[in-house]
Computed example of a mutant assay.
Amino acid sequence: PGAFWRGLRLLAVDGTCWDVADSEANETAFGRPGSGRGSGRSAFPQVRMAALVEIGSHAVLDAELAGCRTGEVTLVGRLPRSTGPGQLVLADRGFLGVALWQAFTATGADLLWRVPANRVLPVTRQFRDGSWLSHIRASGGPARKEPVVVRVLAYRLKDRAGEGETDGYRLVTSLLDARRYPARQLAALYRERWEIESVFAEIKTHQRGARVVLSSKTADGVHQQIWAHLLVHHALRELMLRTAATRGLDPDRVSFTETLRSARRSVTVTPGSFSP
């Protein structure tokens, strides 16, 4: 569907982590997660990042950074500042909650999020396309008395061999009009959420380098390096869009890795010709 679907700009939110230099300052600022291998500590301190990405262009529109002990839900909760009317935000099941849902919808944005397997969503109204109206509630506090109305979609996917079906999926959306936004199309659209994983791979694997640890030994330096990577990625993606537009191509036909190689060649300078 590209960057838009039925007039809605497609965005996605998710989180990832960056390994940073093993220094006392970085460990103090960001923390060090457990390794899960018996030693109790990972090799490097880590920075957690939550990002808001435009699906069609792969452009990172906003991001939040914190230590690894800060949860993704907390960081994503700071990103509604960059959303608004005319947008459809996709997210995985780990983010579904009343407070976060309301934070995004209060900006005018619409949502399409996956539902955890254990969430109960009673039917209050059934639609012809198989979707139904339901509600979600906060786990406690005053907000529990004010349920949020959502529309639920349930479906199954064929396995890769085409011989059977995978486990069922459930999505909830703020798009309550079943005629204007058919359940089958929304289910197919949700696959686009995985594009944000491709964005993280572009930045952390191709641009930064696979298994590369950020070199700065101070918190300020780490922040500068991460934001520099995000800005370079944004510039590359903008270059790709402009190139595609001038040649009448679909932006997906332009290779990110080839664009990255070309950019690196273009900024190579003769030693001594550029002042430090």
Score class of each variant (00 low, 15 high):
Gly15Val: 08
Trp194Ile: 01
Ala143His: 06
Pro116Ala: 03
Glu192Ser: 14
Leu65Glu: 07
Arg211Glu: 14
Phe127Leu: 10
Ala50His: 04
Pro1Cys: 11
Arg191Tyr: 00
Phe95Lys: 14
Pro1His: 08
Arg81Gly: 07
Thr257Cys: 10
Val149Asp: 03
His223Thr: 12
Lys204Arg: 10
Leu230Met: 13
Ala117Phe: 08
Gln46Gly: 06
Tyr155Lys: 02
Ser174Ala: 04
Gln207Pro: 04
Gly94Glu: 13
His234Thr: 09
Arg247Gln: 14
Arg78Cys: 10
Thr259Asp: 08
Gly67Cys: 07
Ala3Gln: 11
Gly40Tyr: 04
Lys145Ala: 13
Ala50Tyr: 02
Arg264Leu: 11
Val60Glu: 10
Leu157Ala: 07
Ile136Lys: 01
Pro45Trp: 02
Asp250Ser: 03
Phe30Pro: 07
Ser23His: 14
Gly7Trp: 01
Ala63Glu: 09
Ser139Tyr: 04
Leu61Lys: 03
Val172Arg: 02
Thr107Phe: 05
Thr205Val: 13
Ser275Gly: 12
Tyr190Pro: 08
Leu79Cys: 08
Leu260Val: 03
Asp62Arg: 09
Thr28Phe: 07
Gly248Leu: 08
Thr270Asp: 13
Val148Trp: 00
Gly162Met: 07
Arg69Thr: 10
Ser131Trp: 04
His135Asp: 00
Ser57Leu: 06
Glu64Ser: 15
Ala143Pro: 01
Pro142Cys: 02
Val254Met: 00
